[in-house]
């Protein structure tokens, strides 16, 4: 390479770098003003709070499910991550005036994600319980799901009492491991990473039933209408957002956002869009407190 060519390369690289820097700064300004009208009157938080740190970063990393329609899933048409949990995550992002950065959180990595800072907040169909409460903090409940059993339409299983000796699928790290061990001790558990795996195995007959929250099972019925929900409600599952242990300020902030979200039409609209139109059921936003939720699910 001749000397003059070298200089030309250097100049070109510096120019590219300059363009990138300008572009990056431009993005920052966009981020600050992003989110439309909502962000104009957004409160700016001190830099030493989680809220301030997120505002500094310009985006909030929220762990959501990618395979649990209708709460958190990838829309096959648009590739966007959508769902009830994602709507709520967006409300939190809007309240901070930052972009929403969804990351995939499966049941057994979401608590570590919070602990190591991979995620700022977890909104992934996570039931509030005391075991988890020892590791992380929860927001107030934002939704109450019920535990049910899903079987093929021609199955003999009609409820929890018929599960003895049957293979029952649920997700690794979900509350249903414990629930099933207690309520159906003779059932053989198959624990898979993702609920989509449970659906595959139910369809090909290598498990006899799936047990988890009714909303997740509803998502499976949307995909395959030969399946049906049977039996009584096994459990009450109040969903809460996961927050890093001890971060009281952020917990209060998130609770405030949820309070507002539940009282204006956004909660009801999101519910109708993702759940109501498929189940034909109506539901009021839950007014359970975190303490009550912890007592219910133990």
């Amino acid at each position: 390479m001749s000397k003059s060519t070298k200089w030309r390369w250097l100049a070109a690289m510096l120019a590219t770098l300059a363009v990138l820097v300008v572009a990056a700064c431009g993005d920052d300004e966009d981020g600050g003003g992003g989110g439309g009208g909502a962000s104009a009157d957004v409160e700016q938080f001190p830099a030493d709070t989680t809220m301030g740190r997120i505002q500094e970063a310009g985006s909030i990393k929220v762990g959501v499910k990618y395979d649990v329609p209708p709460f958190g899933f990838q829309n096959p048409q648009t590739d966007e991550i959508e769902g009830f949990d994602v709507d709520l995550a967006r409300a939190v992002a809007d309240a901070l005036g930052v972009e929403l950065d969804p990351i995939e959180a499966i049941s057994d990595n979401r608590i570590p994600f919070l602990m190591d800072g991979t995620a700022d907040l977890i909104l992934s169909t996570m039931t509030i319980n005391t075991e988890r409460d020892a590791e992380i903090d929860f927001s107030d409940p934002y939704f109450v799901a019920r535990g049910r059993i899903l079987v093929p339409g021609d199955s003999d299983i009609q409820g929890i009492d018929d599960l003895g000796g049957q293979k029952v699928c649920t997700a690794v790290g979900s509350t249903y491991e414990e629930t099933l061990k207690e309520q159906a001790p003779d059932a053989e558990l198959v624990l898979i990473d993702e609920y989509s795996g449970c659906l595959t195995r139910l369809q090909e007959g290598s498990v006899d039933a799936i047990s988890t929250d009714d909303v997740i099972l509803t998502g499976m019925i949307i995909q395959d209408d030969t399946l049906e929900l049977v039996g009584d409600e096994l459990t009450t599952e109040p969903y809460g957002a996961g927050i890093k242990d001890g971060d009281k300020e952020f917990q209060e902030f998130v609770n405030g956002v949820f309070e507002e979200y539940k009282s204006d039409p956004r909660w009801a609209e999101s519910y109708e869009k993702w759940v109501g139109q498929y189940t034909g059921q109506e539901q009021e936003p839950t007014d359970l407190s975190l303490q009550e939720a912890l007592e219910i699910s133990g």
Binding site: V172, L191, I192
Partner: peptide, 22 residues
Amino acid sequence: SLLATQDLLKEARIEVGASGNA
């Protein structure tokens, strides 16, 4: 995988799910 057999790593993951103590 989909086979979901409960080998050593899987058992560890199951217990992590129950306790969060990774």
